[in-house]
Simulated scan of single mutants.
Amino acid sequence: MRLSKPVSVTAVSALLLAALSACSAPPDDVAVTPSITPVQLAQPVAASTSLRVPAMGRLERDEESSLGFLAGGVVDRILVDIGDRVSKGQVLASQAPTALDAALAQAREQEIQARRDRDRAAELLAKQLVARQVLDDADTRLQLAEAARRSATFAADNARIVAPTDGVILRRLAEPGEVVGAGAPVLAMSGGSGGWRMKTIVADRDGIRLLPGDRATVRIDALGGVEWPARVDRVGGEADLASGGIAIELVLEPPASTDVERLRSGLVASARIESSQDSGLAIPTAALVAVDEGRGRIFVVRDGTAVATEVSLGEVGVEYVRVVGGLQPTDAVVVEGAAYLSDGEAVAAAAGVEE
């Protein structure tokens, strides 16, 4: 009997591998399901920051105003003193009439002279002895003289200071016999509203975050440490040149039964100003996969795909981080499993977690 040639071990191995491959390969018409990574998702929530600003300042009556004469001259009489309550229309001070009367008399004489010159120019023009320009110039001088006379009359008739409203005299800034300029402060008074405010300057980093309407508490040590609620009324539009801070005005809101008669302008008071504002979104700190100088990297899920997203960060806490840019409130953020994801990887919310 003739024996066949022996088959090599290499050939047998090749045949076995081919058979195994044929058995394990899926049919052409069967789709391969891609791997989907389960992750835990969370929605961003609105973040609010609380700001507490201490401040020191001085109290002032509401609607304080400085009063002076319309024209310069010598103060004749001051009819009120500091602390006096006055009524609207009450005469508070007057000027010596001598200078004003003299100015009015001079203005009247100049008007008479200008009118006489104008009439003379009209006669000469009628006789064709002067040009039309001469009469026009005379008309102009007459108009100027009439305006000066009206101004002097107004100043003489108003050589006194009258209270513009009910209120309280705060300061006397001039005395009888003194020479004051037009509009120079002679008296300071407060309006009749009876309100009080505190003026202060806070650090620029705090001032730019305060808004009108923010609440505050004002403490007045001169009244035994009494504390009254207050609100921010005005926030300065520019930094103070001397200190670099921002000017703030608080309006005091004492209870209706509080006796405010003991208050005086200029009293020192302290305040605690509180502000709470929406400022960005908050997400769990676990969502961060990278942080670098105020920037962070997270994954958000869109259409079942993990998308690497760069965001701007605010304060970073143990449990939550504030995101100030790069994230939308509707984004679904990966909070567990983010460290093992790649950009574009297919993901699904883990069981029991809503996307």
Rank of each mutant, 00 (worst) to 15 (best):
T200N: 04
G89L: 09
T200E: 02
Q113F: 03
M189T: 06
D206I: 01
L129T: 04
L100R: 04
A93V: 03
V130L: 12
R120Q: 06
P185V: 05
D137H: 06
S87P: 04
L211R: 15
E175N: 11
L129V: 08
V202G: 00
T140H: 06
P229I: 10
V180L: 05
V162P: 11
Q110M: 07
D221E: 02
A121L: 13
L125T: 08
I112A: 14
A148C: 04
R231M: 13
D233G: 14
M198E: 03
L170R: 07
V162C: 13
D214T: 14
L223R: 12
V179I: 04
V168P: 09
G213Y: 15
Q128M: 07
L125E: 11
A99W: 05
Q113R: 07
A230S: 01
W196Q: 07
V91W: 04
R132C: 12
P176R: 09
Q95V: 08
T140K: 05
A145W: 08
I169G: 10
R197F: 04
S190T: 05
M189D: 05
A174W: 04
V226A: 15
E227Y: 11
A105D: 14
L92F: 09
T140L: 10
A148T: 03
G89A: 06
D117W: 08
P164F: 10
A107I: 06
R120Y: 06
L100I: 02
V134I: 02
A93T: 02
E109K: 12
V179L: 02
A230V: 00
A188T: 14
P229F: 06
R149H: 09
P185F: 01
R219F: 05
L129S: 08
V226R: 15
L144E: 11
A103L: 07
A174F: 03
T153N: 14
A93D: 00
G167Y: 00
E123T: 12
D139N: 15
V186K: 00
A126L: 06
G183K: 11
E123I: 10
V226P: 12
G167W: 00
Q90R: 12
V186R: 02
N158A: 13
R231E: 14
I208D: 01
G191H: 03
A156M: 09
R172Y: 00
A126I: 01
D157M: 05
T217P: 00
L223F: 09
A126W: 01
I112N: 13
M198K: 08
E109C: 08
D117V: 11
A105L: 13
G194D: 06
S94A: 13
A96Q: 00
R141H: 13
G167F: 00
Q90W: 09
G89C: 05
A122K: 14
K127I: 07
R116C: 04
R115Y: 13
L142C: 11
P97K: 03
L135P: 03
E146V: 15
L100M: 08
